[in-house]
Amino acid sequence: MKSQESISKNSEEFLKGIWRENPVFVAVLGMCPALAVTNSAINGLAMGLATTFVLFFSSTLVSLFRSFIPKQVRITTFIVIIATFVTVVDMLLAAWVPDIHKELGAFIALIVVNCLILGRQEAFSSKNPVGYSMLDALGMSIGFTIALLSIGVIREILGNGSLFNIDLFGQNFEPWIIMILPPGGFLVLGFLLLCFNRVLNKKSS
């Protein structure tokens, strides 16, 4: 299995989630957490990592047991598995980093209904071997985390004049507060999608 082909397939499964099939910018999945908690870079990163944890372990498990799970109850089983890991990550965050847990609030629990996670189980992990599923999950979650982090970075710089809570511009900067409020989330993602469209269009033409 060490052929050239399998290596390129491996890297393909891994890389597609980061760029070509990026869950936020291209597939437009998981918008709710992508907008709700990205008012600062650190929150975006935390949400990305929590989602990574859930997606990675759910994909691994679903792929391992894919031949045992009857088709009729697969969705319910996936949801039970996902909800378990989300509860685990919720409790761990509350125990280890209470401040971030308080900031993210109920949105950690809402990872359960992130269409990205259930979507990957249905479309990929339930049909592919464990190795590929793990790579696919990792790639997708890294793509998701990068998207969340970049939205968070832009919103925090514009709306608060800081990055990871470090002041960037000093006293004279008048923060563009709307950017860390809900409308800013919609607007920043809208403009990022525009940029993505532009780049993808150029490539294809």
Partner: peptide, 12 residues
């Protein structure tokens, strides 16, 4: 069906 759901529920 019930067995596999039950197993998933038990381990979770």
């Amino acid at each position: 069906l019930i067995f596999s759901l039950g197993t998933a529920g038990f381990f979770s």
